[in-house]
Structure formats: C-alpha cells, structure tokens
C-alpha cells in the first residue's frame, strides 16, 4: 500500500476459500471475487486544496456557473453514501436469518485481544454453540491460522489497505464459509474504532472489545463505535493490578454514550469473566433479541 497516505485501491481485497492456507493459491479459487491485488496507482501527492472555504451557503449553489469550456448544471442526487452497503447488509441479514445463523461483528482497536478472545471462545464454549469465524485483516493469514488451529471453520478476508470490512466482503465470505444452521459466525473486523462503526455487515449484534490498557476514556474518544454497540467486552482485566484503570469510570463513560449498554469485564488469557460472555452467546442463540426480517 501507499506509504505516503495509507491509501489502497478496493481491488486489494481478497476473500479466501474456506480453510485456505497461506500458500497464495487461494487467489485462484472460485470464491475470489475481487481480482488480483494489483496496486500500481501512481497518483501525485500534492494535496493543494484550492477550496479551503469549505462550507458554502446552499443558495450560492443554485446558480450553475459556467466553468472551463462547457456549461455546468447542477444535478440533485440526495443519496445516502452508505445506501449501497446498507442494501447488501440487509441481504446478508436475510441470508443469515433464513439459515438461523447469528453473526456478530467484533470490533476493537488493533491489539485489544479479538483473536485471543476468539481462540479462547472456540475452546471454551464449543460444546454449547457451534461457531465459525470470518477473519478480517489487512494482510496475512496469521490470525485465521491461529483460529483454525483452535478448531474453527475460518474464512479470511484480506482487505489490503482497506481499514474496515463491508457488507460485500462479508457476503462473499459467508457464501464461502457455508455456516451450519443454528451456528454463530464471529466476524473479526479490522482493528480500527473509526469506520467499522459506519459499515453495517448484516450482523445480528455488534460487540466492541476494549482493553483496560487503552484507558478509561476510550468511549468518549470513539463515541460512534460505542453508541451503536450491543455489548462491550472489557478485556485484559488480569492487568488491572498494574494499571490505574477504574472499571466503574469506564462503564460510566460508555453509558454516557450508550445508556444501558451491557459491559462484561473479561480476561481472554486467564479466562476470568468468560462464562458471562458464553452465557450471553448461548442466550442469544436460544432466544434472539432482534429477529431480522
């Protein structure tokens, strides 16, 4: 990806086959819907913004001003930017509902412990609920290999430079994964607390994982992420003795953004608190909160 600005083209996205190994051969599989990872854009990086004024009064746009050679005219579009993603997400939701599969969208900063939590969950709750994983990462199959070793059906999505999963990627991964009826699909989003909040994947519920090492004010810094989540897992509680982190204050901040949100303190490494998380999972499998469609 471009080192200067972190940009990449959408074609960098690769969806692996179910249980693909890191041999690069998955790029030729039938599930590969995004073309090769060609990333040869050579755009100039001279961002000379010539319109620093930014906000224009709506009325100054009513008059179409002739510019350059041709004549310009205004076309009203009034389109929601995320409309296309929302439509595809709704399609995923329907697909999942028809099969009685619950998908959870797991979101966090990089390193908060999503993969560790998934590994632990696969080992710890396997008897009660059948689980499968969609693993989103910018590059590498490392995390999906970790999870496959833990015994799960895993499909990896490599987003290239893309910093979030979208509904199209997840739809494609779901068809590749073919989750069993009655199972739970855990979707590990790309480590990022910003734009994953905006992209509905068609999930049944959103789960935010915050680590105690990230500070109590995470909810205030990333309000959009916390505002729309159904559950917060506060991870790495085993480190609390070494930190000046007050769980109550974190909970207060989270509830300032999302009153009534459920918060479960856990440690993915020691297993402390995880039974409450497994109960949450099992409870939603047997009696879903919100029935899609």
């Amino acid at each position: 990806m471009c080192a200067t600005c972190g940009c990449g083209d959408e074609r960098g996205v690769r969806v692996g086959a179910r249980d693909a190994a890191d041999t690069r051969e998955e790029s030729g599989s039938p599930d590969h819907r995004y073309g090769g990872h060609s990333h040869d854009h050579d755009h100039p990086h001279d961002h000379d913004h010539s319109h620093e004024d930014g906000v224009h009064a709506p009325d100054d746009s009513e008059t179409a001003v002739p510019e350059q050679d041709g004549v310009t005219r205004r076309v009203e579009l009034e389109r929601e930017v995320l409309a296309k993603n929302d439509t595809l997400a709704e399609r995923n939701r329907q697909w999942l509902t028809e099969r009685g599969v619950l998908a959870l969208n797991l979101m966090s900063s990089p390193g908060a412990g999503k993969t560790t939590l998934l590994e632990r969950t696969l080992a710890g709750s396997a008897s009660s609920v059948p689980l499968a994983v969609i693993e989103g990462d910018q590059e590498t199959l490392r995390d999906s290999e970790r999870l496959r070793r833990a015994g799960a059906d895993v499909v990896q999505i490599n987003t290239g430079a893309g910093c979030h999963l979208d509904a199209e990627m997840v739809g494609s991964a779901l068809r590749s994964l073919r989750p069993a009826p009655g199972s739970v699909v855990l979707v590990e989003n790309v480590g990022n607390l910003v734009c994953p909040a905006l992209f509905d994947l068609g999930e049944y519920a959103k789960v935010v994982i915050a680590a105690v090492t990230e500070g109590e004010d995470k909810p205030l810094k990333y309000p959009n992420m916390f505002a729309h989540t159904d559950l917060v897992l506060l991870n790495k509680t085993d480190l609390l003795p070494h930190l000046s982190f007050e769980v109550d204050r974190f909970a207060e901040y989270a509830r300032r953004i999302n009153p009534g949100v459920e918060i479960l303190p856990v440690s993915a490494t020691t297993g402390e608190g995880l039974s409450a998380w497994y109960d949450w999972l099992a409870g939603h499998v047997s009696s879903p909160l919100h029935q899609g469609v």
Binding site: V71, L77, V81, L82, R256
Partner: peptide
C-alpha cells in the same frame, strides 16, 4: 440526564453535483 436520543446529525449524504455538459438543463 445523559440519556439523549439523537434525532439528526448523522447525515452522510451526497446532495448534488455540478456536471459539465454542452446544454443547459
């Protein structure tokens, strides 16, 4: 009370574009 229901402010919308064409609409 911090329990405030958001009614608007989350817009992410393309309002309009100016396009160049030979004729005026």
């Amino acid at each position: 009370s911090p329990d405030v229901e958001v009614l608007s402010g989350r817009e992410l919308r393309i309002r309009a574009v100016d396009v160049e064409s030979g004729t005026v609409a």
